[in-house]
Design a protein around this nucleic acid. Structure first.
Lengths: 197, 197
DNA sequence: ATTTATTTTGAATATTCATTCATTTATTAA
DNA sequence: TTAATAAATGAATGAATATTCAAAATAAAT
């Protein structure tokens, strides 16, 4: 019996990330993904149920990875709350800047996919967000973070800011150097715009 | 000769905002917009060139309005920098919370439409952003705002946060009460997460 | 070499909808 | 009343493309 050679499943996913980033999900052509992945159109449907499924798997990969990383971070006892918070920022930052096409896909498609399939959207995202909130709540309890801040609002504030910034970087990296961005995200989210002498 | 009765152009735009918010631009059906607007399918093409054009006009309306409002604010001499900044936040906030469907459409479609038609995207948006940056730069010059902050990054930070939050409110208003959101956006963007005793 | 099991293929299919335009309807002016 | 003009209509068109599936190709087992 015949054996698979290479890993078409992975090749297709990588190609899809590029094509989705380039054209957006709706304008992305299955034929183009097949071409980039060096695979026939038919093969795509061997490995993925349909176009939506490909997008879904991309999100699962991203948020699954982030969830696992954050899970290790949360339980660490050797870090101050600020150090934990900064480490969380770095983690998100690194995940998305590792592959700019992924950053673009998440920035552009996540809202829509959450709307379209609220039941089916990867549970890793919710779990990841839950862990993030845990860190912030712990910091508030310990008095490091401001107790008047609404945790739920803060999470959308931070992730929304992140999404826009990382997308901006992915689209024009020269205008948004990684280190400047990283510093500014950490600083702004912790200290804000005002000059505190 | 026959005169127009009512204002189909406006009716179509309002209906389109609702349908785009409900289904997203790509899943939105022209037939559904026509139905909601109490207008024939053909009439839509009398008033708008095509589906893209409808979306474009929505953005033009929103950012055109915001640009004009912000233009009046920028030149006022009777306000401190913080007051100006807060007024700007209120302005954006009010525009989008006035009509939740509009908020959803902007949150979901803006990134994509900017990508698809960078030349054609409404110049009001760029002009609006330019004015916002002017306020921040002025505040930095006067020493009210922190001079280490990168203005370009700050703008994406703030607008990204805004977009996510207003969309969250539009989708589930009970979870995100307007006043709490408004206060938190102002507070977080000015003071950040940390507890400054 | 032949069989068997599995993978791969891509032309053909089927569906979906945005857009068109010939026709109808309504309004005003003569 | 009638003519002239503009507005409104919606069935028909055509283009686009996601998905299917019967056939072909390949690798291992016999």
């Amino acid at each position: 019996m015949r054996k698979k050679e290479g890993n078409k499943e992975v090749d297709i996913l990588s190609a899809a990330i590029k094509v989705f980033a380039e054209s957006g999900f709706f304008d992305a052509k299955i034929a183009k993904i097949a071409e980039l992945a060096n695979v026939s159109i038919g093969s795509i449907y061997v490995y993925y149920k349909n176009k939506d499924d490909i997008l879904y798997k991309i999100f699962e990969q991203i948020w699954g990875g982030l969830y696992n990383n954050l899970d290790s971070l949360v339980s660490r006892k050797d870090l101050t709350m600020v150090e934990k918070y900064d480490a969380m920022i770095d983690m998100i930052f690194d995940t998305f800047t590792e592959n700019s096409a992924t950053a673009i896909v998440v920035a552009h498609e996540q809202q829509r996919i959450v709307m379209r399939t609220p039941e089916k959207f990867t549970p890793y995202y919710e779990k990841f967000v839950g862990l993030g909130e845990k860190i912030v709540k712990e910091g508030i309890k310990k008095g490091t973070f401001n107790q008047n801040i609404n945790v739920n609002i803060f999470r959308h504030f931070l992730l929304g800011a992140f999404r826009d910034l990382i997308n901006s970087w992915a689209v024009s990296p020269k205008e948004f150097p990684l280190n400047t961005m990283r510093q500014n995200i950490k600083f702004l989210s912790k200290y804000g715009l005002l000059n505190h002498k």
